[in-house]
Every structure is written in C-alpha cells, then in structure tokens.
C-alpha cells in the first residue's frame, strides 16, 4: 500500500472522529442547557402566540411592535445592504461577457423583469421593479426565520425572530400594496376602465394576504411544534426546515409575483374598440324576407 493511500485513510478517520466528537459535544450541550430555558407556556399558548402575537411584543423606540416587524426591518436592511454592496463593488465591474456572480445577479433581475413583461406586455416598468422587491422580500424574509436571531420581549421572554410574513399585519400590508400596484397599473393603462377591472377583484388583497399568511404560518407552527419538544429537535428540523421554509420561500414568492403580474397585465390592458355591427335596416330586412314594408310595420 502506497504512502498516499495510507495518508488519505488516516485523514478520513480523523475527520470522522472530529465530526462525531462535535456531534456528541453538541448533544451534551443541548441536554445540559435545556433546563435553563424551561418555558412556563404550554404548547397551545406558544402556538396561539405564534399566530396572534398578542403576548410577546418587542419595544422599538418606545413603540410596542410584533417581533415580525423587527424581522421585517432586519430583512429590509439586509436586502438593501446586500444591494448596496453589489451596486458599489460588483455593478461597476460588470462585463459584456458575464462572470458567475454577474450572471446570478442578471438572472435574478432578468427573471422578474421577464415575468413582468410576459404577463403584462403593455405596461411593465413599475411592475418589474415591484415584483423584484416583493419576491426578494418574501424569499429572504421566509428563510430569515432559519437564522433564529433571539430578541427579548417586553415581558422579558426571549423569542427568536420569526419570518416577517408570519405576522398577519405584514401579509395584509403586502397583499394591499400588491393590490394598489395593480390598481395603479389599471389607471395608467386603461383609465377608469382599469379601475373598474381592478375593483371587480375586490377580494384579491384579502386572498393574497391570507394566502401568504396561511402559507408562512403553517411553516412557523410546525417549527414551533417541533422545537417545543427536545426529542423532536434532532434530524427532524433539517427536513422540516427545508420543507416548510425553503420551499415556502420559493413557492410563495412565485405565487405572489405571478398573481400580481397577471392581474396587473389584465388591469392595464388598453381597451380596443370593437367595430360596431351594422344592424340591417327595416327596408333591407323586409326585402330580404320578401315582406312588403307596409306589412312588416
């Protein structure tokens, strides 16, 4: 056996031993620290608070806000920060033949722009920018809960920051904003007719809001349920996290973007006057039926 093979085998064994030791230490740490964070709330209270956010509030400049609002601010700052970094360091170095990172940025922007153009061919300037922001917000906001940044509530309890859209207020804000964007597109594209087309779908903001809220909430509830019991906190969160967070992030972004663009396209479609059908005159009609005019009258 050559020296290289022996060395590779030794490296593999070392890696396995190190990983196993870390896993054991983590498990021991989890079990030992568990009594420190014994909650007095039972699972029904935890889940109710996850839905309603009645109990746990966070203080923000003297205002009591839901933890999801703090998440929202964090997500907005994160997105704007990343965008600023890309704008300052990457965009000026963009080349005609793109590199990997440039290709990624262009693909994301081009994808939202393409969806806007495809579903609303008449007007899509504002729409593309809006769906880009909304899509990024939903995707990043939903995956944000995976980080689990802890904040202290006004009652002194520590909670991890949830996804912004798991708060119904955030979902309503996004749903109504999408509706207003559609309405603005209707006004800009087809005037009063566009307003009429948009108002016809008056249930749209509610359905959009509650769809987002329901989808995000389901993930949150399952996560709360899983993390409530320590016995479920191994292996399972990986699957749950992927299923209820990553997939939701992509699916909900796609759904809201598609719905907004489709309704926008429908509302902003310019009206085309149909040519009037010529009614046959009484004389002509009578002549056709071989009926004397006097008789027909």
């Amino acid at each position: 056996m050559s020296k290289d093979v022996k060395r590779t085998k030794r490296n593999k064994i070392t890696a396995i031993v190190v990983i196993a030791a870390i896993a054991v230490l983590l498990i021991v740490g989890i079990i030992l620290t568990d009594p420190l964070y014994q909650t007095t709330e039972d699972i029904s209270e935890v889940m109710k608070d996850a839905v309603l956010h009645e109990e746990n509030k966070v203080s923000l400049f003297g205002y009591e806000v839901n933890p999801a609002y703090i998440s929202s601010i964090a997500v907005v700052l994160l997105l704007l920060g990343v965008a600023l970094v890309i704008r300052i360091f990457a965009v000026p170095r963009f080349k005609l033949i793109p590199g990997k990172f440039q290709l990624l940025v262009e693909t994301v922007v081009g994808m939202f722009d393409g969806i806007a153009k495809k579903n609303s061919p008449h007007r899509n300037g504002l729409l593309g920018a809006y769906v880009f922001a909304a899509g990024c917000y939903i995707a990043v906001g939903t995956t944000f809960e995976l980080i689990g940044i802890p904040v202290e509530t006004t009652s002194g309890v520590s909670v991890s920051l949830p996804a912004p859209l798991s708060d119904i207020n955030a979902a309503i804000a996004l749903g109504f904003l999408s509706y207003f964007v559609i309405l603005s597109g209707g006004i800009a594209g087809a005037g009063l007719r566009g307003v009429g087309r948009t108002l016809k779908d008056f249930s749209l903001p509610i359905s959009m809001s509650f769809r987002l809220f329901g989808a995000l909430l389901s993930g949150l509830l399952v996560s709360e349920l899983v993390y409530y019991y320590i016995s479920l906190s191994f292996v399972l969160p990986v699957i749950v996290g992927v299923l209820f967070t990553l997939l939701h992030a992509l699916i909900q972004s796609y759904v809201l973007v598609m719905l907004t663009t489709m309704f926008y396209g429908e509302a902003s479609e310019p009206h085309i006057k149909k040519p009037k059908k010529q009614k046959p005159t009484a004389k002509h009609g009578a002549a056709q039926n071989n009926i004397p005019v006097s008789q027909e009258v």
């Binding site: 806000v65 839901n66 609002y69 929202s72 601010i73 907005v76 997105l79 704007l80 965008a83 600023l84 890309i86 704008r87 965009v91 940025v105 922007v109 593309g128 920018a129 809006y130 880009f132 922001a133 909304a134 990024c136 917000y137 912004p164 708060d167 207020n169 955030a170 309503i172 804000a173 996004l174 109504f176 904003l177």
Partner: peptide, 23 residues
C-alpha cells in the same frame, strides 16, 4: 403595524429599484 410594514416595503421597493434593479 400594517402602516409600518407598508413603510418598510416602500423603502425596500424604492431602495432596491434605485440601488440594484435599475442599474
């Protein structure tokens, strides 16, 4: 809170448009 979220979204929309989307 809805208005606060709307403000956030507005800032995000305008910011992303000017900083990243448009360039």
């Amino acid at each position: 809170q809805i208005l606060l979220h709307l403000l956030n979204l507005l800032i995000l929309g305008v910011g992303l448009y000017l900083i990243l989307y448009k360039p």
